[in-house]
Design a protein around this nucleic acid. Sequence first.
DNA 1: AACGCTCGCAACCGCACTTTA
DNA 2: GTAAAGTGCGGTTGCGAGCGT
Length: 248
Amino acid sequence: MGRAPCCDKASVKRGPWSPDEDKTLCNFILTYGTGGNWITLPKKAGLKRCGKSCRLRWLNYLRPDIRHGGFTEDEDAVICGLYKEIGSRWSFIASHLQGRTDNDVKNYWNTRLKKKLLHSEKGTDRNPKKTGSTSGPNADFEFPLPACPGFPVHDNLLALLTSPAGNNTGESFVQEFPVPSTNTTCSSSSYSSSNTTNASSSVSSMVEGSGNQLDYGFGFPEDEAAAAGGGGGWNQDNYVNYFSYYIC
DNA sequence: AACGCTCGCAACCGCACTTTA
DNA sequence: GTAAAGTGCGGTTGCGAGCGT
């Protein structure tokens, strides 16, 4: 059984989008939405484009909340950390960067970050990044963790962010993280040990039904799990809260 | 000024997965 | 249960801008 093409390539326009096409697509989606069907959208909007092309144009370029260029050091750190952990799952990595698309992250990685890290590893980077902590298991693949005032960078978190998935020592750590829809201001006090449970509940409620479930696939040390509820020990909630803070 | 090279980015391709009939 | 349709995603390509010679 062959796969039917999504559109007739002979009758659709290809190549760069014109300002008029952008305007038409933008106006249509802002007025009527996508209707849950990209294939029929170009016809309804009066565009001679493939539905996939429209979807790509909207998601990667026309969406109102898109940011282009100007990646920050913090974003570099998130990209490097997640890439090291899960590989080239760009859409997943992009979902942790406000206003970034998978295509943007992918391009940024392929054109800049990869080379930057290569030079850094070879010691040829003229401006080597200062890492937040270098005590992780992969000190040869260093990246900076952003400073989080009043909230320490725990060595175990660094290990979680930097260790290969094969280094599991406990049961699978499956957790849900929120992907903030807007820039969120987090204060360290909101994540104090006294309201960890509340913060965790909040996190869970924020993502319920949103589909932003995250399975990191790495193990969670049993001794840390045992410390849950036991004073100052770092438990899963702590990591969830910290990482939630970290990515916002 | 002209040419060639490099780099960054937008867009396309094709496969895998999910949903629908 | 199965095939077709629709969607999402990672890899790749092509083009234009910038730069050096």
